[in-house]
Simulated assay, not measured.
Amino acid sequence: MNCNATVNRDAIVGCILGTAVGDALGLPYEGVASQRAPRFLGPPDRYRFFFGRGMISDDTEHTCMVAQSLIESHGDVDVFVKRFASRLRWWLLALPAGVGKATARSGIKLWLGVNPKNAGVYSAGNGPAMRAAIFGAAIDDGSLMMKLVRASSRLTHSDPKAEFGAIAVALAAKHSREHATVDANQWLDQVADVIGDEANELIDLLRKTLESVDRGECTTTFAKSLGLNKGVTGYTYHTVPTAIHAWLSHPNDLQKAVTTMIRCGGDADTTAAIVGGIVGTKVGCDGIPNAWIAGLREWPRTTAWMQHLGESLAESIAGNPTISAPKVNPIAVLLRNLLFLLIVLFHGFRRLAPPY
């Protein structure tokens, strides 16, 4: 394997596992106000979902489905859309807990026979952003990457804001992979060039993000400056600026970036997954705490399966035509999701009790 392929492999595996650990660490904090979380759960320095172990949610599952579809598409955007749409349909049938409304509605439209290009619903949610980092980790061709990000976004969300947020995340991951030192202004200029004047609101928010980082403000303070005192919402123009702030504040330290993001509260699993994916692209698997990888209790998408997926995607992108996408047993996924749902319900009832 050539040097560039090796870099991509490390970046892709780091992105997938970084997304997974951020997702799993943030999951029990999802929807818990930032002021209550320290009293209710303690610091986000270890897994607190299931007897000290972590499990992933839709954020990581979508990233894995994107990676599988990229392997099968061989750079063909139309094939990617078809394969991802097919996976999205069956994923929804397996009863995933906590699926976003826009994604659920688009999945239903797909089952009703709607063309994947018309299945998206008008929503500016953060679903496209949560699965966008893998594009930046894997794809060298900037033009192709943008086409894939847009296709992925429009499959579930037709509001351009959702697409703009996903593009910013994908470019952040790509910048992390390609630069030894992050140049925030260079990254922002690239984002502005790609998404144009239509996204001036997001560019203004990202410019404020960079200014806040330059002043040395912590991410929680920045989130509050956006009016997110109770936590970061699923609105992509809330999610993406705060996630970018955590990335730029700790571009080489996944542990600090992810835990800082979770302390902001709100949609903590998605925001931490996005940050984990971006920084994981930079630091690779070696930059993720071993205890966090070992502490994930997942099946059938085990950490070994995720690593194999990342390596397969890297081989595919390097030009190996014999690589096939790793698969998962749908019955196993359904059984896993039923267990996951029971644990989520337990957490829901637990939140009714003190401390408040």
Score class of each variant (00 low, 15 high):
residue 58 D to P: 01
residue 178 E to A: 03
residue 203 I to Y: 00
residue 175 H to Q: 11
residue 347 H to L: 11
residue 140 D to V: 12
residue 99 V to A: 05
residue 313 L to R: 02
residue 258 V to H: 04
residue 179 H to M: 03
residue 263 R to A: 08
residue 41 L to H: 08
residue 5 A to F: 14
residue 284 G to L: 01
residue 150 R to I: 07
residue 53 R to Q: 15
residue 270 T to D: 08
residue 56 I to N: 02
residue 175 H to W: 14
residue 278 I to C: 03
residue 137 A to D: 11
residue 153 S to L: 07
residue 78 D to M: 12
residue 315 E to W: 05
residue 303 T to D: 02
residue 132 A to T: 11
residue 71 I to W: 02
residue 324 S to F: 15
residue 170 A to P: 03
residue 9 R to E: 12
residue 124 A to E: 08
residue 302 T to F: 13
residue 46 R to F: 06
residue 22 G to W: 10
residue 233 T to S: 13
residue 331 I to D: 14
residue 174 K to D: 08
residue 333 V to R: 01
residue 222 F to W: 03
residue 277 G to P: 09
residue 59 D to Y: 15
residue 196 G to C: 04
residue 175 H to P: 03
residue 88 L to S: 12
residue 338 L to D: 04
residue 295 G to I: 04
residue 122 Y to A: 13
residue 60 T to G: 01
residue 48 R to D: 04
residue 38 P to G: 04
residue 298 E to Q: 13
residue 36 R to F: 05
residue 226 L to A: 05
residue 198 E to F: 10
residue 200 N to T: 07
residue 115 N to S: 15
residue 40 F to V: 06
residue 159 D to K: 00
residue 234 G to Q: 00
residue 325 A to F: 06
residue 149 V to K: 00
residue 291 A to C: 13
residue 242 T to E: 05
residue 354 P to S: 03
residue 349 F to C: 02
residue 286 D to L: 10
residue 236 T to W: 08
residue 112 L to F: 11
residue 48 R to H: 10
